[in-house]
Simulated assay, not measured.
Amino acid sequence: WVPWSERLRPGDMGPGDLLPTEAEDLRLEPGWSGEDEPPPNSVVSDELAELADAEDAELTDRPVAATSRGSIAAVAEELGTRRARVLSRYGLYEAADRWDEAFGPKTPMAQAAPATCVSCAFLIPMAGSLKQAFGVCANEFGPADGHVVSLAYGCGGHSEAAVMPKPVRPADHALDTMRVDAYALRPERGEGSVPAEPDGASEDLGHS
């Protein structure tokens, strides 16, 4: 008998399925779990804020406008880091190895590519510590569209691999349309090999 956690494979999860994580999952580590109020020795604590306002009031005669100092929780909420658990360094390395195996420099597609993704215009940079090695492909005709790719990956859809040349401009017309050439509709008399008026010899021979 094999536990379900060991039988599960990528792509097995469907709509409505729940995948619980273990409490000691090596891929995760505790995130920021402080209270809304900063500690007493924090630069944004109420005590230091009141002390700073009092010193400012002593140094100037003008009334000082009250400044609102955000708490650590508010800053963490804005930065998106206020989570119970975050990805650990082991989880980052594991994800990087998985992405590098699927869309990395050792794949047959990358080996035959004319250039790497680091110079491709379809690459969307990532944020965080993995931005120096990975990005997201945005080429709808590429094999990795919408996937995380290594900067050393590449494919035939590179933006600078085969730039289509501009259409050749046709040459100007050589005909002179500013001058009119006169052409006779009927030949003039006396021109051609047959005379206009038959002579006597031709009548004797039966020519008309």
Rank of each mutant, 00 (worst) to 15 (best):
63 P>K: 12
114 P>F: 02
198 P>F: 02
109 M>P: 03
199 D>I: 04
77 E>Y: 08
177 T>K: 09
81 T>K: 06
199 D>Q: 07
76 A>N: 04
108 P>S: 04
24 E>Q: 11
199 D>T: 09
98 R>A: 15
122 F>E: 12
187 P>G: 05
193 S>L: 13
47 E>D: 12
109 M>R: 14
188 E>G: 14
167 P>T: 05
139 N>T: 04
187 P>Y: 05
173 H>K: 10
187 P>I: 06
97 D>P: 01
132 Q>Y: 13
5 S>T: 13
184 A>I: 06
192 G>R: 00
7 R>C: 09
104 G>A: 00
80 G>C: 01
77 E>M: 09
85 R>K: 10
167 P>F: 02
48 L>S: 07
13 M>I: 14
100 D>W: 04
106 K>C: 08
53 D>K: 15
39 P>H: 07
8 L>C: 07
94 E>A: 15
196 A>V: 14
17 D>M: 12
173 H>N: 14
81 T>A: 13
152 A>E: 11
126 M>K: 06
72 I>R: 11
66 A>I: 08
161 A>Q: 02
33 S>H: 11
9 R>C: 11
126 M>Y: 03
148 V>G: 00
148 V>A: 01
90 Y>G: 07
146 G>E: 04
153 Y>E: 00
133 A>Q: 08
180 V>I: 13
7 R>P: 01
57 A>G: 06
84 A>R: 11
46 D>V: 11
190 G>I: 01
13 M>E: 08
131 K>I: 02
94 E>R: 13
88 S>H: 01
195 P>H: 04
115 A>Q: 10
18 L>P: 03
179 R>M: 12
100 D>Y: 03
82 R>S: 06
102 A>F: 06
129 S>H: 08
188 E>M: 09
11 G>Q: 01
187 P>Q: 11
65 A>V: 12
39 P>N: 07
196 A>R: 10
58 E>R: 15
195 P>I: 04
106 K>I: 05
97 D>F: 08
103 F>D: 00
199 D>A: 10
153 Y>S: 00
30 P>M: 02
130 L>G: 07
82 R>E: 05
81 T>D: 06
125 P>G: 02
46 D>G: 07
74 A>V: 12
153 Y>A: 01
150 S>H: 00
62 R>W: 07
61 D>C: 07
156 G>I: 02
84 A>I: 08
150 S>E: 00
146 G>Y: 02
198 P>G: 05
25 D>F: 05
91 G>S: 03
162 A>R: 10
17 D>T: 05
8 L>A: 12
19 L>D: 06
157 G>D: 05
143 P>V: 04
184 A>R: 13
56 D>T: 09
151 L>E: 00
172 D>Y: 06
17 D>V: 04
157 G>P: 01
70 G>H: 11
79 L>V: 08
44 V>G: 03
33 S>K: 10
145 D>F: 15
19 L>S: 09
